[in-house]
Nucleic acid binder design. Structure first.
Length: 598
RNA sequence: GGGCCUGUAGUUCAACCGGUUAGAGCACCGCCCUGUCACGGCGGAAGUUGCGGGUUCGAAUCCCGUCAGGCCCGCCA
């Protein structure tokens, strides 16, 4: 029977006889003495074997190799003074092995070394193919631990301190319009009909409020059949919450306490409360983004009013057509960013054009208030406007001012991306800084040009701001996102709980009464039976863990993630199935290998 | 659907502008070494340069196609 875990042994254990199980992390054979680093999930401890002190185990230590599984019985001993290892938590002790039992060997060449120098990075496809080995490695083992600790902290806080109850909701549910593409599951019992996997438990948690659950949470798996990114997987985990009879401020305060609790218990980090708040309008104005990274400055400056009458048509025309002209001032940018990079063919130009910009005008601020700029600005911007522009952007010698001009959304998207690229390149992002903030007062709807209709920015159950109900089309929503270092890690809203308001919203997004009844009739009906005011939030748990673990990819926060092609390299999912299985489900595949699908 | 990047020994990387037998660290095998902790020393085995085609006297290197992985755009209420 195991008496201890490897990584937990300390000087206070000296003298004890211990039984350890684990993997050989490394073996060092000095001819007359063999050292084995034995690893389990808690860490490593050094095993010593030599012919004099441990004659029985010495021959047993000889055939050991990396990643062999062994049982070791030995005595915890003080290391000689000159052999202490301050790099290891167990570095004060070592185990004299009285017996070493080989439980299992490695029978094939390891696809990669489990224990390697930090500088060596293994190809990710190999790591995913042999994920069970990858998870043995310190980095991934640590990430799994962080994930576990985060979820544990959430449960302790919500259940023990705040009276939340976890309720599971269906994985097999019904397809709903709006939102992402659904994963579908054919129903054998009901031929021709399909379940959908939930994109989130949204409707069920609202129903639970009608049920009087009052404070619900769930660590909920969600599914969206969309293309993958470094921070997006087709199945992911939300911390889903919903609560009744609370105002927005009360919900935000509770969530601030939750997030602070998570960081405090998992990483010992104190986060000042309350979190800063920005309205959506402010965030778009100052950063061009609804999830701004506020760890650094580089705020945008709107200069539409200064240039609206100038002779430079790109500027005046943009304003005349209802757009804007904004400046991204880059302190010290003159030395950092050459004209070549801003002009067609340059990398900064490319970033801007991918966001829809036609180009980037610029001003370079020189000594004594002199400027270098493109001819069109020099010739067309009156001196007093130039002075006002320099003073409004707080321009100093050496600064580079980049202009975005055009439709508001394109200008914001352009300068947002350039801002992030510049911050990264100029090392403006402080290491280890955590910047949490709320974005509030999102608009209810945005225009979908493809479908020529308004659609819900958040989702169609979001309550309109009480001051704005006169005109829903332009109304603000009582919706909020939590942003951490430029990543949206959570978002929620107060919900509509009156059927008539819900109906107005469906009308506004062009959902006919019939469609609404067909898709959401059960929810509207539930609202007829005494629905409490309620609201909630959902966090992207994988993303939160990724950020807390210091990783750049959500895959490193998930035990068994999928590749960008949505494949599992370990199980080879997805796969073909027997014709008989399809038949049983009353479905057939229209896919023909070698042919283009459309 | 589109753009960009990567693919060389089990693994991490080299191999210059196309030119002898494709090299090195780790891992593996053998020998040596009693205080290492990324131990060290000597030796060995290990390669269809992802795959297919083309250009060339000659291709890891250039070109085309294809497969796999990554980053991004579109998409993701």
């Amino acid at each position: 029977m195991r008496t201890h875990y490897c990584g937990t042994l300390r000087a206070s254990d000296i003298g004890s006889t211990v039984t350890l199980f684990g993997w050989v992390d490394r073996r060092r054979d000095h001819g007359g003495v063999i050292f084995v680093d034995l690893r389990d999930r808690t860490g490593v401890v050094q095993i010593v074997s030599d012919p004099e002190r441990t004659p029985e185990s010495y021959p047993q230590a000889d055939p050991l190799r990396n990643e062999y599984v062994v049982k070791i019985v030995g005595r915890v001993s003080q290391r000689p003074a000159e052999s202490l290892n301050p790099k290891l938590p167990t570095g004060e002790v070592e185990i004299y092995a009285d017996s070493i039992e080989l439980l299992n060997a490695v029978r094939k060449p390891l696809p990669f070394q489990v224990s390697t120098a930090d500088s060596e990075s293994v190809r990710e496809d190999l790591r995913l193919r042999y994920r069970y080995l990858d998870l043995r490695r310190e980095r991934m083992a640590q990430n799994l631990r962080v994930r576990h600790e985060v979820i544990k902290a959430i449960r302790r806080f919500l259940e023990d301190q705040e009276g939340f109850m976890e309720v599971e909701t269906p994985i097999l549910t019904r397809s709903t319009p709006e939102g992402a593409r659904d994963y579908l599951v054919p129903s054998r019992v009901n031929p021709g009909e399909f379940y959908a996997l939930p994109q989130s438990p949204q409707l069920f948690k609202q129903l639970l409020m009608v049920s009087g659950v009052d404070r619900y949470y769930q660590v909920a798996r969600c599914f969206r059949d969309e293309d993958l990114r470094a921070d997006r997987q087709p199945e992911f985990t939300q911390l889903d919450m919903e609560m009744s009879f609370m105002t927005q401020d009360e919900i935000l305060a509770l969530n601030e306490a939750l997030v602070a609790h998570i960081f405090k218990t998992v990483q010992g980090i104190e986060i000042p409360l309350p979190f800063p708040r920005l309205t959506y309008a402010e965030a778009m104005d100052r950063y061009g983004s609804d999830k701004p990274d506020t760890r650094y400055g580089l705020e945008l400056v709107d200069v539409s009013d200064l240039v609206k009458d100038c002779g430079f048509k790109v500027f005046s025309g943009a304003v005349a057509e209802g757009g804007i002209v904004k400046v991204l001032p880059i302190p010290g940018g003159n030395d950092q960013i050459s004209n070549v990079r801003i002009k067609p063919g340059g990398d900064i130009f490319k970033i801007a054009s991918e966001a829809g910009a036609k180009g980037l005008a610029y001003i370079r601020v020189r000594a004594e208030g002199a400027v270098d700029t493109i001819g069109a600005i020099k010739d067309n911007l009156p001196a007093e406007k130039m002075q006002e522009l320099l003073s409004r952007t707080n321009a100093q010698e050496g600064d580079l001012l980049l202009f975005g001009a055009g439709p508001t959304d394109i200008v914001n998207a352009t300068l947002d991306r350039v801002r992030q690229a510049v911050a990264k390149e100029m090392n403006l992002i402080p290491e280890g800084k955590l910047n949490l903030l709320w974005i509030t007062d999102f608009p209810m709807f945005e225009w979908n040009a493809d479908e020529q209709r308004l659609e819900a920015l958040h989702h169609p159950f979001t309550a309109p701001h009480p001051d704005d109900v006169a005109d829903l089309k332009t109304a603000r929503a009582v919706a909020y996102d939590l942003v951490l270092n430029g990543y949206e890690i959570g978002g929620g809203s107060l919900r509509i709980y009156q059927p008539d308001v819900q109906q107005w919203v469906f009308d506004t997004i062009g959902l006919t009464t019939e469609e609404a009844k067909d898709k959401f009739g059960f929810l509207l009906e539930a609202f007829e039976y005494g629905t409490p005011p309620h609201g909630g939030i959902a966090y992207g748990l994988d993303r939160l863990v990724m950020l807390m673990a210091g990783e750049d990819s959500i895959r490193d926060a998930i035990a068994f993630p999928k590749t960008q092609q949505a494949r599992c390299l370990l199980t080879q999912a997805p796969s073909g199935v027997d014709e008989a299985q399809l038949k049983e489900l009353s479905i057939a595949s229209t896919y023909e290998p070698g042919e283009e699908e459309d």
